[in-house]
């Protein structure tokens, strides 16, 4: 128990995601089910999201269709499972600007948004280079930038340059630059003492297999296959995360990990979406 409740909320899934996109070097290993989710953090004074999914009715939905994503469900239904309305969300921490992490911003009109400045600068650089560089634009929905612009005008956008400790009490943002994307970041939730931490990894770690490889008794980092940055930096960031949680891999929460339900309490919603309860704050009730 502690000050923060944390739930991983599935909002869609890709039953046919190429394994090679998730694990570097894993060629010709077929496809796998990949949950698409965001993370709800509830404290006494704030309702925060780590990433916001995408909007199926926007271009993000077309990207999603092209990679086999199905079952998209709107945030009011997804968050409703935890008694939260989209307009209640006060803070949004964007781990990176891929469509399935930033595309749902329009649903959260009252939230302040935190993203690494380098993430946006890198997309600007790529766009300025022209069409020949478009493979580096993979996963970006340019329309999402319009929503960032709108949030900026409304004073709801904060561009970070590196680490931000205590963005909310006990919640820290750390850069993982040149990893999955140029300006990725991850979130650390500190619930009690220094040994009670969770790392919400974004896509720097897709699944636990990125941390261990195939043999948990002889673990080997296998970084994500889809990355704009360096495989070495991905491994360094994963090592950094392990250090934060005292090498307890289960305290790293990869948002695309289907097996989270094996390690944490969970249930399926009426819409067939998985709700995983990572921890429940003092005074908060379980939602699973």
């Amino acid at each position: 128990m502690g000050a923060h409740s944390v739930w991983v909320l599935e909002y869609a899934q890709s039953p046919v995601h190429p394994v090679s996109g998730v694990y570097y070097g894993a060629h010709n290993q077929g496809t796998m089910n990949l949950p698409f989710a965001y993370i709800l953090i509830r404290t006494a004074d704030a309702v925060a999201l780590v990433d916001v999914g995408h909007d199926a009715n926007d271009f993000g939905g077309e990207i999603a269709n092209s990679i086999g994503v199905t079952g998209w469900t709107s945030p009011d239904i997804v968050l409703g499972e935890c008694g939260v309305r989209p307009e209640d969300v006060t803070h949004i921490f964007i781990t990176h600007a891929h469509f399935d992490h930033i595309g749902g911003l329009k649903f959260f009109p009252n939230a302040k948004i935190f993203i690494q400045k380098k993430e946006l600068e890198s997309w600007m650089w790529i766009l300025a280079k022209g069409r020949r560089f478009r493979s580096l634009l993979a996963g970006l929905n340019p329309a999402d930038i319009l929503y960032l612009t709108q949030a900026n005008i409304e004073g709801r956008l904060e561009l970070l340059e590196g680490t931000r400790e205590d963005v909310l009490p006990g919640i820290h943002l750390y850069p993982a630059h040149d990893t999955h994307t140029a300006g990725s970041q991850y979130v650390v939730v500190q619930n009690g003492g220094s040994d009670d931490r969770l790392v919400l990894s974004g896509d720097v770690v897709y699944t636990y297999r990125n941390l261990t490889g195939d043999d948990q008794l002889d673990p080997c980092f296998v970084p994500p296959g889809l990355a704009n940055g360096s495989q070495t930096k991905l491994i360094q960031a994963a090592e950094e995360m392990l250090g934060i949680v005292g090498n307890d891999e289960r305290r790293i929460i990869p948002v695309h990990e289907e097996k989270l339900a094996q390690f944490y309490p969970s249930r399926l919603s009426d819409h067939g979406l998985r709700i995983v309860e990572i921890c429940v704050a003092d005074g908060e009730r379980s939602r699973v």
Binding site: S20, G21, F59, I63, S66, R131, R134, G139, A143
Partner: peptide, 11 residues
């Protein structure tokens, strides 16, 4: 599509 997604993700 509104935007060019030819280089997107796994294609």
């Amino acid at each position: 599509m509104t935007f060019d997604a030819s280089g997107c993700c796994a294609g």
